[in-house]
Amino acid sequence: MIKFDKISLSFDGKEIFSGLDLEVGAGEKVVLSGRSGIGKSSLFGLVLGFVEPDSGSVFFEGVRVDEKSVWDLRRTVSYIDQDVSAGYGKVSDWLSFVSDFKANQGLDFGTERIFELMDLFGMKHELLDKSVSELSGGERQRIAIIVSQLLNRKVYLLDEVTSALDKVLKPKVAAFFMENPDWTVISVSHDPVWLESGNVKVFDLEAMEWKR
């Protein structure tokens, strides 16, 4: 599904990866471990074409990620970033901004579906009228998760998506992603709740090897 092929990457002379090889198959659930600053977020940037490698390639479903293929990829892969800088204006404005993208025409962004997802993740419906900047970190994370569900995607790149959630929600959200057999999930998280599902593989970016 996703393959990193001899990736080397550096920022401002600082080496992040040199010759990284990593392959994640369809339906697999992978947690990336390693101390912070080791480039876990850059790895997602590479997949999404936000960062270009110095050498090596990323392949998605057998196709090399380049300036042409990346646009389709971004419509297939769901990415939730670390501090969820989601949104302009009110939450409902943000949702309609996203649903207005040409690529998202035909997806169900109806109120019923939104309320259903809000209930699932323990959010009050009134939050839709709040400005995105007023939301707490945990609320923003859940809005981003809800958006990913509205987009109906099957591949997930999750960057610390449970960091601001409470004790009840953390395992619930982790299980939500890790226990869906149809989805391919790569999660960056320090939280042990992500390791609770039985089929989770762990890749150590520091040692560049599978731990589990």
């Binding site: 936000f50 970033d81 800088s85 901004f97 993208f101 690529a103 987009l151």
Partner: peptide, 21 residues
């Protein structure tokens, strides 16, 4: 706002849709 801009791209926005705001 680069994170938010890139996030829009990852949500399926074309370049035009992402820079429009």
């Amino acid at each position: 706002d680069s994170k938010r801009y890139l996030y829009s791209l990852s949500l399926g926005a074309s370049q035009h849709e992402a820079y429009l705001p």
